[in-house]
């Protein structure tokens, strides 16, 4: 009995001490903004804006949805905070531009940000995520299964009488029948982010970069189908590396 009491007192003291020492943990949220070079693209103008890619084709966008995951902040002590969940963005739905991870409180500090384009191999499990299944976001089993990383549908050459559809879809790459290669990308920013109160990290996506760097994309050659095209999938993976920039950090 005496022992228990002692333990209890100890526990209470510890608990209280702990509480006393706690510094407020800032919460981190993310907002994605989308551009075509300098023009903002959002749910209002997605289907009404005509843009021109690096190869010179005039384009109308029909649908633009993409997946990002494994948001990680690493501080100067090399401690990494990985946020739960993934972000499924649909440019037609403004709500999906924001991402508030479930447990998003981290200690104050200076951090760098990293996230994954799509799902890495550990996460890209066929059929495992009910919300993504419900959005029909799946990538066919014959192409390695799992999920789409990007669905970008539209029309090109819309300034000619010969406008044609393109389906720029990205996911696991199929090398040959039954042989697949991961195709996600790790997006890392070197710019330090100072976090000492609740913070919104803005990330800018320049959609035009999908068609620009390092591969100037010629839609006249590569419009659709691209999902089963290994080379196209790998070129997308390369081009994706430069579409994101770190935007404003607001506290």
């Amino acid at each position: 009995m005496k022992k228990i009491t002692t333990l209890l007192i100890l526990a209470i003291t510890l608990f209280t001490c702990n509480e006393d020492n706690t510094i407020i943990s800032p919460k981190v949220n993310f907002t994605f903004n989308h551009h075509w070079n300098n023009a903002e693209i959002n749910n209002d103008n997605l289907q009404t804006t005509t843009v021109t890619n690096a190869n010179g084709e005039a384009i109308n966008i029909d649908r633009f949805r993409y997946l990002t995951s494994r948001f990680e902040l690493t501080n100067t002590n090399n401690e990494t905070y990985t946020f739960d969940g993934y972000k499924f963005t649909d440019l037609a739905i403004a709500d999906t531009y924001n991402f508030s991870p479930e447990n998003n409180a981290i200690p104050s500090g200076t951090y760098t940000l990293k996230f994954v384009w799509g799902f890495n191999e550990t996460d890209n499990i066929d059929g495992a995520y009910p919300d993504l299944n419900t959005a029909s976001w799946n990538w066919p089993e014959m192409l390695g299964g799992g999920y789409h990383f990007l669905q970008f549908d539209g029309m090109y050459n819309v300034d000619t009488t010969d406008a044609s559809p393109f389906n720029f879809h990205n996911g696991t790459a199929r090398v040959s029948e039954g042989v697949f290669e991961q195709n996600f990308a790790e997006i890392a920013f070197e710019t330090p982010i100072l976090i000492n109160s609740d913070t919104v990290i803005n990330i800018d996506m320049n959609i035009a970069e999908l068609f620009t760097n390092p591969n100037i994309w010629d839609l006249n050659v590569l419009d659709t189908p691209l999902m089963p095209n290994y080379d196209a999938q790998k070129m997308m993976q390369q081009n994706i590396m430069s579409i994101f920039n770190l935007g404003e950090i607001t506290q």
């Binding site: 059929g127 299944n133 419900t134 799946n138 066919p140 089993e141 189908p225 089963p228």
Partner: peptide, 15 residues
């Protein structure tokens, strides 16, 4: 995608 390509609108074995 290079044959019927029905699954982008009509579900798939996981939907």
């Amino acid at each position: 995608e290079d044959k019927g390509d029905c699954f982008h609108c009509h579900g798939n074995p996981n939907n």
